[in-house]
Simulated assay, not measured.
Amino acid sequence: MAGAQPGKRERLALAASRVLHEQGVEKTTLADIARAAYVPVGNVYYYFKTKDQLVEAAIEAHAEGLRSVTEELDQLPTPQERLKALLGGWAEQRETAARYGCPFGSLSSELGKREDGLDRTAATVMQLLIDWAEQQFRTMGRSDARDLAVALIASYQGISLLTNTFRDPELMAGQIRRLEDWIDSFS
């Protein structure tokens, strides 16, 4: 059904991904997420028994968002255009990155300090992005596609950190332009 409102579970997962990005895992409460999802806090436990289950749902929401973006990008005719469109999407989010960092990179960094399985779950989503970028470089005929994909994602994560640290969205804008030129150099 087109235009249907997401159910409570989906609203909670999406709200969790946003609130966890803005506040971090440790600071965020279930009540914060319930409020952001417009769901009574008592209803959260019907869908998620623990905060970690809600964090896992937020990770899956990020994965679904990434899959949706890459499916859309895959409609572009060349791998260079696909990669540059990915960069363009990141550039559009530079104000958010300046305030909170990369939505998924920040979460991955925070969860990476844990050893409860959520660290590995988050890593699988980052792996999806690297794999997609690797496929773009491989389509360009690059034998070093994996290294180039890691370099691209690492560059973005690094500039996201610096953009957030200095609260300067123009740092990201400049680095994105350099990455676009870098991608063009493979033509």
Rank of each mutant, 00 (worst) to 15 (best):
A2R: 15
K8V: 11
L12C: 08
V19H: 10
E22N: 04
Q23A: 12
K27N: 12
I33M: 02
R35S: 15
A36Q: 15
V39I: 07
Y45I: 03
Y47N: 10
K49D: 12
T50R: 12
K51T: 08
V55C: 05
A57N: 12
A58Q: 10
A61R: 02
H62F: 15
H62P: 02
A63D: 02
E64S: 07
V69G: 05
V69W: 04
P77W: 02
P79Q: 06
Q80R: 15
R82H: 01
A85G: 02
G89I: 06
Q93M: 13
T96E: 11
F104M: 15
S106I: 02
S109K: 12
G112A: 08
K113M: 11
K113Q: 15
K113V: 06
D116V: 09
G117F: 07
T121I: 05
A122F: 10
R138K: 15
M140K: 00
S143D: 12
R146Y: 14
R146K: 14
D147Q: 09
A149I: 00
A151E: 09
A151T: 09
L152K: 05
I153Q: 13
L161M: 07
L162K: 00
R167V: 02
E170M: 08
L171C: 09
M172T: 08
W182I: 01
S185M: 02
